[in-house]
Design a protein around this nucleic acid. Structure first.
Lengths: 335, 335
DNA sequence: TTGAAAGCGGTACCAA
DNA sequence: TTGGTACCGCTTTCAA
């Protein structure tokens, strides 16, 4: 085992200069009370010894870690990377680091991750599309007064901060647009139980109503946000010989599967069937047929949520903050 | 400000039971030397008080944080999310957390991130497609004996561990395949200076040579891994009226731009021009034309690299480990 | 302007 | 089997 150069501590600096660790600490943190001359010498020595403050010790003493925990189902799932980037950018801008935890949307794993994060004494938590949406799920955070914010999916109750996309108006926007062409709109909503899906159904229904179209529950299918699910559902519909004119998918990933099934059947998009998605993923404009969709401001959701959280951490404000970002209709060739 | 329930400490537990903190520590860590009966009582009390070990204090004392730092240019860029997922999965399986740092491939930012991570006393570092590939860039890590591993892009010199995709044979595989159809293969390599690009050029040349085709440098363009860059380059080529038969792109993202330019020109893929990529991104099979490409095992790279790093952390083995994963040719309709 | 001492929450050593 | 004590590296308070 090779000899390891130990990282210098304030004591090492103090010893070098024949002064106290206290003085070094004050100087390096610009706390004042130390002569300018000495401050200069201390800083020089720190640089020379390649001093790196031990943030762990600092955290222990100050009871703050400048670290934010991020709990997310699957950080690699299409929609999330941009959100995470937004989180990381906003956090590092304010001097915070992020610890990323994947949980596969399994409640038990989320709770475990939460415990790990609490043990690491994170200063705050971001719950991104989390399953812990019931008040009792996050009671612990409240009790311990650890700031947290929901992203993408809000809590069932209004007792927590959140930053979400306006799912009701997003779905409304799209349904309303599709209704210009057809009165029969299939809706492949996301299944994974969550309030976003509920909100989107509300938007869809609202559009129908305003257009004087009777809501037909048989046109609404619920599925996982996966290509396969969209493919299978669409295929089955087509095999049954059902008359499909337009399919509004709860996420772009589902649309991809839907388009595959349609193309495979030899039908044309949008001439025979219109397809629309939700999210506006990175490559939505470059798919088999460029996809009409609802743009969610993924990066912004991450930034805004993080800024909100950091404000909470800093000010310990008590009031709830609910940010609802406006979605945008992006029309491309699939409709 | 509402009253905050403080998180219980071992002292609180000790006080409850009228014993020493030492005993509590030993019991909770199953160190032995404490009567079974007492251990039971201690664990019960810990549970009752909702004790969460203060990992910060533990880290300070033990000089280990069970945390790995991940330095990456842009965690949201197409290729990386799966790699990160692999890292996170492998890390959490072994009880490690990851701190994610984005650096936009800016060397200074990478160095800053490294300093932050060192200050946070991470147990090891993953450098993913990092710019810090020169020995002097990571000298600090060596000096401090902090284990680290390169992912995706290796160090220039052989003095560091890495897990990469075999870029030479990946490019060889593709070029060799394309040469079956045409003797003129344009190569849109990735520009961002890096050894992966160099290796791919080697593979490309090797295939030419084996097929008795003279290497023509004018067919090789270098560009950033962005849709726009591929689009612009292809467009210019077509406007110049250059005879293009097959384009091998250094990454799938470039291919997307290339395909757009070709389609826009009213040409057919693959009939008029063949297009191939590298990476096999998530949606490669669902693009305008399903893309022929080289599959890189993204998730595996993340897992393997992390496992390797954790082994280093645990055993402090001195030998270098170089893992080179085999790429795979995936043929779709674009060729 | 400076520094000694206490303490953050644990763990490890040694003595009882 | 148990506990006292020192210490990890830093900050803060208070006294000099």
């Amino acid at each position: 085992m090779k000899a390891t150069k130990k990282i210098a501590t304030i004591k090492d600096i103090a010893k070098e200069l024949g002064i106290s660790a206290t003085a070094v600490s004050k100087a390096l943190n610009n706390k004042g009370g130390i002569s300018e001359e000495m401050v200069k010498k201390i800083k020089e020595t720190a640089k020379r010894l390649d001093y790196k403050p031990n943030v762990i010790a600092k955290s222990l003493k100050l009871n703050k870690t400048k670290t934010i925990g991020v709990i997310i189902s699957d950080s690699s799932h299409t929609f999330f990377p941009k959100v995470i980037k937004g989180i990381e950018d906003a956090a590092s801008k304010e001097g915070y680091s992020i610890i990323l935890c994947n949980t596969d949307s399994v409640k038990e794993k989320e709770k475990k991750a939460l415990n790990v994060l609490i043990s690491k004494r994170i200063d705050g938590v971001i719950l991104a599309a989390s399953m812990l949406t019931h008040a009792e799920d996050y009671a612990l955070l409240k009790e311990l007064d650890i700031p947290f914010v929901f992203l993408i999916r809000r809590s069932e109750v209004e007792s927590a901060d959140y930053v979400i996309n306006d799912n009701v108006s997003g779905a409304y926007l799209m349904a309303n647009y599709l209704l210009r062409y057809h009165r029969k709109i299939h809706f492949f909503n996301i299944k994974e139980y969550n309030i976003s899906a509920v909100d989107r159904l509300i938007g869809y229904k609202k559009a129908l109503e305003e257009n004087g179209v009777q809501y037909d529950p048989s046109l609404v299918l619920n599925m996982n946000p996966e290509i396969e699910d969209g493919y299978t559902a669409m295929r089955q519909l087509l095999e049954k010989g059902e008359d499909v004119k337009a399919v509004f998918c709860g996420c772009d990933v589902i649309s991809i599967g839907v388009m595959e099934a349609i193309i495979e059947k030899g039908l044309k998009i949008p001439e025979d069937i219109q397809v629309a998605g939700y999210d506006d993923i990175d490559f939505a404009a470059y798919l088999r047929v460029p996809l009409t969709t609802i743009r969610q401001p993924k990066y912004s959701i991450g930034c805004k949520g993080t800024e909100l959280l950091i404000n909470k951490i800093r000010n310990k404000v008590d009031g709830m903050q609910h940010v609802v970002l406006k979605p945008e209709l992006v029309v491309r060739q699939s409709t």
